[in-house]
Simulated scan of single mutants.
Amino acid sequence: MTAKIVMIGGGSGLPVIIRPLIQHDVDLTAIVTVADDGGSSGLLRDYVNIIPPGDIRNILVAMSEGDQELLDLFQYRFKTNDAFLAKHAVGNLLIAALTEMTGDISEAIARLAHYLKIKGHVFPVAKQPLILHAKTKSGQFLEGEAAITAAHQSLDHVWVEPNDEGEEIVASPEAIAAILDADLIVFGPGSLFTSILPNVVVPGIKEALQETKAKQVYIANIMTQKGETDSYTDAEHLAVLNRHLGQNLIDYVLTNDQEVPADFVDYQKWGEISKQVVQDPEKIRQAGAKSISKDFLALRDAGAFHDGDKVADVLVSLTEE
Rank of each mutant, 00 (worst) to 15 (best):
V202R: 04
A126Q: 03
K269L: 12
G246Q: 12
L132Q: 00
K283L: 09
H306Y: 08
V26T: 02
L180I: 14
E168S: 13
N256C: 11
K87Q: 15
E211L: 13
Y218E: 03
D309C: 08
S195Q: 05
F296D: 06
I148Y: 02
A134R: 07
L98G: 00
A287Y: 03
S195T: 07
I169R: 01
L209D: 00
A289R: 11
Q268M: 15
E282V: 14
E65D: 11
T212Q: 01
K4Y: 06
A89M: 03
Q210D: 07
Y252S: 01
G39L: 04
G308E: 10
D251G: 07
V314E: 13
Q225P: 11
L318D: 04
P124D: 07
L315W: 08
P20N: 15
V32S: 02
I292Y: 12
V278Y: 08
Q216R: 08
A175Q: 04
R77T: 13
S274I: 03
K213V: 02
T212W: 08
D301C: 14
Q268N: 11
L209G: 08
G120E: 05
Y232R: 03
D181F: 13
A96E: 06
H244G: 05
K127I: 05
P162G: 04
A208R: 04
K87M: 09
V316G: 01
N256Q: 08
L60E: 10
V61H: 00
Y115E: 13
K87A: 15
A134Y: 02
G246K: 08
H152L: 15
H157K: 12
V260F: 00
I22A: 07
E207A: 02
Q225C: 05
A134S: 10
K137Q: 10
L238A: 10
K87V: 09
W270V: 05
S154F: 11
D307I: 02
A62K: 05
S317H: 01
V6C: 08
E65K: 06
P173S: 13
V314R: 05
I22K: 11
V90T: 12
D251M: 05
D263P: 09
Y115W: 15
G42Q: 03
G66A: 06
E272S: 07
I148N: 06
D313N: 11
A108I: 04
K294P: 03
I185F: 08
V265E: 05
G139A: 10
A108W: 02
A3K: 15
D251N: 13
F123T: 03
F74A: 10
V201P: 00
T136S: 01
V61W: 06
Y267V: 14
D234R: 04
S41F: 04
Q140I: 15
S138D: 08
I51Y: 04
P124H: 10
K283R: 10
S172R: 11
V160D: 00
K127D: 07
M1Q: 14
S172V: 06
T99Q: 09
V61G: 03
Y252Q: 00
G54L: 01
L192N: 02
I292C: 09
V122T: 00
A171I: 03
D280E: 09
N199V: 04
A147R: 14
D67I: 14
G66T: 04
G139L: 12
L94D: 12
E174G: 11
L73T: 12
H121I: 00
